[in-house]
């Protein structure tokens, strides 16, 4: 996993609530058995006028000029500004994979759906929850200022605006540690393999039926 320390980036606004993971990456692209390459199909149904299918050459697609990420002023954005309940719906981790592959490193919203929120941390993508009023004011500033950038500092747990405003955000210490160091949590968990084995043995002794397979 990529380390996340400070990201100073261009902000792209996605002004709608309840953006679901079907919209972030539509189902036809979930057929891939790879973990990479989803960026060209991020928000596919909104981003293109033609219908997206796996294996297309992105250069042959017809972009929807009205979709915000197609506007030249947001090209190269690495911070996504979003509305409430971002990432609801399907558990597909392809959603953060697609955002990351496109170039986003952080998503700012008033609230996130639980599974999406979890999945982000496994992929070096930082979901930051900020109060509705702060998000509102960021939307107006992004709208009013071409090239609007923000600085996200994970160690300090701060989002800093160009005019010096600082917005603190909360994050679990364990997740923060893993993100800062780019750590693989399987490796960390396996350090506790003895605890897991002991727990498992006791559980199997007490409730053996939880460990059976099918019987004819």
């Amino acid at each position: 996993m990529k380390k996340f320390q400070v990201v100073d980036g261009l902000v792209a606004p996605l002004d709608r609530s309840n953006v679901d993971t079907d919209a972030i990456i539509p189902k036809q692209f979930l057929k891939s058995i790879q973990r990479a390459g989803f960026g060209p199909n991020l928000f596919d149904a909104w981003r293109y006028l033609d219908q997206g299918e796996p294996g297309q050459d992105p250069a042959s697609r017809r972009p929807n000029p009205d979709f915000v990420l197609n506007q030249p002023r947001y090209a190269g954005a690495s911070i996504l500004l979003a509305r409430e309940n971002f990432g609801c719906g399907s558990s597909r981790e392809h959603a953060p994979w697609a955002l990351e592959d496109f170039g986003f490193r952080a998503v700012l919203a008033p609230s996130f759906a639980d599974i999406f929120h979890n999945n982000c941390f496994k992929n070096g993508m930082l979901p930051i929850t900020l109060p509705e009023a702060v998000i509102d004011s960021l939307f107006s500033r992004v709208d009013a200022t071409s090239g609007y950038r923000l600085q996200v500092d994970l160690a300090a747990q701060e989002v800093r605006t160009p005019d010096g405003e600082v917005h603190g955000f909360a994050i679990d210490p364990f997740r923060k540690y893993c993100m800062l160091e780019g750590l693989d949590d399987i490796g960390l968990t396996l350090r506790h393999a003895d605890d897991i084995r002991a727990f498992e043995a006791a559980r199997q002794a007490a409730q053996p039926w939880l460990f059976h397979g099918a019987r004819p």
Binding site: S91, E93, P96, I115, N118, N119, I186, T189, L190, A193
Partner: peptide, 13 residues
């Protein structure tokens, strides 16, 4: 429900 990284985590641990 869990994501794919968690699927891998549960498989391994």
């Amino acid at each position: 429900g869990i994501g794919t990284s968690e699927v891998e985590h549960v498989m391994a641990t």
